[in-house]
Design a protein around this nucleic acid. Sequence first.
DNA 1: TAGTAAAACTAACAATCGTTAGTTTTGTAG
DNA 2: CTACAAAACTAACGATTGTTAGTTTTACTA
Lengths: 189, 189
Amino acid sequence: MKPEGRKQEIIDSAAILFKERGYSAVTMRDLARAMGIKAASLYNHIQSKQEILASIIIDLAEHFTTGMNEIVKSDLTIIKKLEKIIELHIDITLTNADGLASLNNDWMHLEEENLTYFEQMRHDYEENFRQIVRTGVNNGVLANNNIEIIVFSTLSTLRTLYLWYPKQRTIDPDILKKDMITVLLKGII
Amino acid sequence: MKPEGRKQEIIDSAAILFKERGYSAVTMRDLARAMGIKAASLYNHIQSKQEILASIIIDLAEHFTTGMNEIVKSDLTIIKKLEKIIELHIDITLTNADGLASLNNDWMHLEEENLTYFEQMRHDYEENFRQIVRTGVNNGVLANNNIEIIVFSTLSTLRTLYLWYPKQRTIDPDILKKDMITVLLKGII
DNA sequence: TAGTAAAACTAACAATCGTTAGTTTTGTAG
DNA sequence: CTACAAAACTAACGATTGTTAGTTTTACTA
């Protein structure tokens, strides 16, 4: 499915380093050392440092976009849609926790084309989320709180999952989904 | 109260740039340009780039530590303590939203002494938070969900406030506090 | 075993990094 | 007006950055 060659190994290795120190603080020599080769050798497989970042972020963003679009055009209830969104974030976190760090913290280092593309996807994603919440509030199925606060607080938690999950690997993914749905939707009191 | 001289102006200016691009991607020449002077002139006021980062982060971390310690040793109910924690985060966000970006994303670039100090403060803060939640669950005043998930989801939202609040400046702080308490503690359904 | 393509290497480049030294300008108090 | 300190400046340093060019090694396949 994925082009699992040397290039993908480099990208995966880079994602780990970017997660630990951020894109700008990781040098090509750092990345090469992590791969056990010299910096110049990286360029037999990749075109630039920027290409690595773009590959990490754009792939993930498109994954989120695809998942959200499917949820939006489904005919599930509002509550079920929100549950699906939570599950989408958890699934992606489980399979690509490292890359999510770049998506969250290093997207601003994307260059012109990819930056615009990313920002568009993020905007659409948030707007879809907002619309679902808005509908839920209007229908009375969600409590009548400030919509922006609901969207922000839920999304904040989901976006930061990647920081927390690796420390809790013992939790079963299905239990995690269930508990997260309970906490995020029904509150903690 | 604060030493509001040229040095603090540089630190405040740096916090804005660090928020936009991250510590490693901001050069001393960038910072100097933002101040309208040359890079070398910065060194009449500060000792190093590292000192700026440490000043931003340690000040904030100590602020959180002080606030949490007061809440812990108070004799408020568990619910009231959680409300106080939410208010603490909102208050700090309102007065120093820029610096919070460094606290969240650039703490790993602190050097040995300050890095250890910061990590200790963060650990203690989280442990205090966890203990309050644990007590609440044991007393039955909080729902019996996974404690780690409660702590993580609440803290994620509070820590990310700095990203969101500047876009919503029209919201009155007291209303924000009230709504945030409702959403975080009582859920959105 | 000879040929070939992938993937590593050495060496170096121009640009930029944080920082220092030494000098000049600016603003204020006597 | 003079003296002085604060705060700016110019010029440069050694180190490091992403990247390129050209070469050698490695691993298969015919």
